[in-house]
Design a protein around this nucleic acid. Structure first.
Lengths: 342, 342
DNA sequence: ACCACTATTGACAGCGCTACCAAGCGATTG
DNA sequence: CAATCGCTTGGTAGCGCTGTCAATAGTGGT
């Protein structure tokens, strides 16, 4: 004999089936596809399960069925407010479904992402949500050869692996710069920290529109690979003003930087927006209540997470969405920090 | 016969064992306890596994061993910066170990927490990290009857279920109020949002020290069950000034509120700290770079998460920590927003 | 040389559940 | 009235791994 037998107190599917007077396989079906049972058996199994307090053993289920009910989520950071909003959306959509979330943090490394991807896929997740469209070629081909639904998050672009939900960072940045143009700003600086692919694309949008207006000047650009922070926003503005003292506006690649810029302007007695217009990006909650209120680009982060999870779940259950690529758009929230003409 | 046989391409432990020329059980031991093997077999199994690209099937392992390598984490919110720092600590400590994190969000509901706890424990996690010390009696007895290590996070208190790591919110609040006393403040308001148990204990500390100084006045207290935000900080200050126009300082139960108060003071041309001293709580990054810089109580959130996860892992592996209750303390970061006498 | 003892290794029998196939059954059809 | 169909139900045989125990090999003491 192998080992000591199962602890007698343990409720297995067999016990439920016995109490309900059906075969184990029928009881099993009840939990996976109740409609397949006749009404009488369905009721009997249900009450038996409730009476015994049965909880399915997920490990056994996964082993026998070669599938799990786990949705893997790969995000680059847990700290960034942007991702916590996205995550909240994902968890809200997944809670209440039969699925659960397995979260992993790539720390902005696509090599780490590739590693985690392999790890996830070895456990046969039901679905996958990944951040961005800049996977390694290996990651890409791993994802393409896998048979679970995948959503790429945060950006839109050509050539989705499977599904995609996000918006155009480049266009969003262009819209913010256009707004600054309309306010009469010409020497518009670009501040960026942690140049991840999303920030890079915002930067591309900035360069393009500035060049189109023949206003591009490399001295107006200050970026750093350091992680973003409010303090850093102040430091980057200081750099910018050293390189280009005639700067009349700054586009900050995220809102933390914008807040830091606002504080730095106060410190230096630079009036906002008269001497310096400011635009942030993401429209975090505090932007609307700063003094002056801060212009930003609203992105639909919560919705992005929620809809991504919903798309994955629908696809798992065989209901593929009509459109594989969803653009959630953005809105330039024009506020005091950039309103020169009113 | 039951079903179609395993897809031939699939690498199982058996294949690894075969290639290495050992029995499957020996190969199995290699992955769980390499030291138990002789050097030769260890090397042979290792290279065989690498050559075949073997990845263990966790479902099978969990089923056979009746254990998992999952650490369940229950937190009340994904949005709050405080928890994202804690989570980052947890993930940092768990990444690189054999364990993985299963995260669930209680949404500040202890009933939800109880439900999730049952769900987790049914899957036999290797360890558990829960937030706070205010579980329902049922949750409490469930946790006590379970045999995996458990860490309670965020607070210290008597009577841990198992282990505990945090600090005294009441003492931390008292320390901040003492500092405001030392600066000559007497009419010190308390602003609180989302009155979760931690905030409640900060409030208890406030009431106690104010009463000791015979300065307690209910008109100085403004709280709301609404979730916290910067905007809300401004609104709460407005309420406070209506009820108690002679307020000369505010203690904000978190930093978002403090930032909102700062902005509201600017809006109303109330000078900080001369007319109004401000203290926040948690010491988020932006506090040090606001203008004026904002006083806050630094809490060691990242360390809390990291150490909690480390304690759980150590305990799982049989190395119980000497002290079951760890107090990580706090530091009042005295900054411009409260420095009246310099 | 013999024995107790430890360090390695292997055989066996499941862990709890589900995929696959087939059988039972009443209803429908030619 | 037999053949057919669709729906429900059950039997069988694993899914890939590990706990338990026994067997074997190696060690040093007397």
């Amino acid at each position: 004999m192998g080992r000591k037998r199962t602890k007698p107190g343990k409720i297995r599917l067999t016990e439920v089936a016995e109490l309900a007077g059906v075969s184990p396989i029928t009881a099993s079906r009840f939990f996976r596809n109740p409609e397949a049972l006749s009404l009488t058996k369905r009721v009997r199994v249900e009450s038996a399960a409730k009476e015994l307090g049965y909880v399915p053993n997920l490990a056994a289920r996964a082993l026998a069925s070669q599938r799990t009910e786990v949705i893997g989520v790969l995000i680059p950071s847990l700290t960034n407010n942007v991702f916590s909003d996205v995550l909240r959306g994902i968890y809200d959509a997944v809670d209440g479904s039969r699925y659960s979330v397995q979260l992993a943090n790539t720390r902005y490394s696509i090599l780490q992402e590739e590693k985690l991807l392999r790890l996830f896929l070895a456990q046969k997740p039901a679905g996958l949500i990944v951040t961005g469209i800049d996977q390694t070629p290996e990651s890409r081909s791993i994802m393409e050869s896998v048979d679970c639904p995948i959503v790429q998050l945060m950006e839109t672009g050509p050539d989705p692996v499977d599904m995609m939900i996000g918006f155009s960072h480049s266009d969003a940045c262009r819209a913010a710069i256009s707004h600054l143009f309309a306010q009469g700003c010409r020497r518009i600086g670009f501040l960026g920290a942690r140049m991840d692919p999303r920030v890079q694309r915002r930067f591309d949008g900035y360069v393009a529109i500035m060049k189109e207006a023949s206003l591009y000047d490399p001295r107006l650009v200050v970026t750093t690979p350091l992680p973003t922070s409010v303090t850093l926003g102040g430091a980057l503005l200081a750099d910018l003003l050293t390189k280009a003292p005639d700067t009349d506006a700054v586009f900050c690649a995220n809102d933390d930087l914008a807040l830091g810029v606002l504080f730095e302007c106060r410190r230096r007695h630079i009036s906002v927006p008269e001497q310096m217009a400011i635009s942030g990006f993401n429209d975090l909650e505090f932007m609307a209540s700063a003094v002056p209120t801060l212009t930003s680009v609203r992105t639909n982060r919560y919705e992005m997470g929620r809809d991504a999870a919903t798309m994955v779940i629908e696809a798992i259950e065989g209901r593929r969405p009509e459109q594989r690529v969803v653009d959630l758009g953005f809105t330039v929230m024009e506020r005091q920090s950039s309103m020169r003409r009113t």
